[in-house]
Computed example of a mutant assay.
Amino acid sequence: MQETNTTFVAVQKNEDGDITAFKTSDGRELSYDDALQAVQSGQIADVNVGEARNGRPVIRGNPDGNPDNNLDQLPSF
């Protein structure tokens, strides 16, 4: 897996508040599925892929004890 400094800096959410897209620190806008592939291939720092209760893969911020940098707290774009 490659090392990267690229991070998620903003998100888009649907009417239910679920994240549907991400904006990266290098200016790319990624759908959730494209972001998932980028995280799995090591292109995005400070996040990982976990499993939701329904068994689907979900993008999560790496735990660091600071709730203020949770993906849900990122600004909208």
Rank of each mutant, 00 (worst) to 15 (best):
Q40I: 04
G61E: 15
G27E: 05
D64I: 04
K13R: 14
I44A: 02
N48G: 11
R56T: 14
N62Q: 11
Q40G: 09
A10R: 10
Q37E: 13
V39I: 05
V49G: 00
K23Y: 14
T20H: 00
M1S: 13
G42Q: 01
V9Y: 11
Q73L: 07
I59F: 06
R28P: 10
N66S: 03
G27T: 08
F22P: 01
V49M: 05
S31L: 03
D34V: 12
Q12P: 00
N62G: 04
D33P: 00
V39P: 08
Q40S: 10
V49Q: 02
T6Y: 05
G55H: 02
L71V: 01
E3R: 15
N54Y: 04
T7F: 08
N54S: 05
L71E: 02
P67D: 04
G65V: 01
I19S: 09
S25H: 02
F77T: 07
A38N: 06
V11M: 11
Q37T: 14
F8L: 10
V47K: 03
Q37C: 03
Q40Y: 00
S25E: 00
A52C: 01
T24Y: 04
M1N: 08
Q43F: 08
N5Y: 11
R28Y: 07
Y32R: 00
P67W: 01
G50A: 03
A21M: 05
G17F: 12
V11A: 08
K23P: 00
K23S: 11
N5G: 10
R60A: 10
G27I: 02
Q37R: 14
M1Y: 13
L71H: 01
G61S: 14
N48P: 00
V9M: 09
G65Y: 01
F77A: 08
Q73C: 12
F77N: 04
G61Y: 12
G17D: 08
N54D: 13
D16E: 12
D46F: 11
N70I: 06
I19A: 06
K13G: 04
T20P: 03
V11S: 09
R53H: 09
D34E: 14
N14T: 06
D16Q: 11
N5H: 14
E51G: 06
G42I: 02
N69R: 02
I59A: 10
A21P: 12
P67M: 00
P57G: 06
D33G: 07
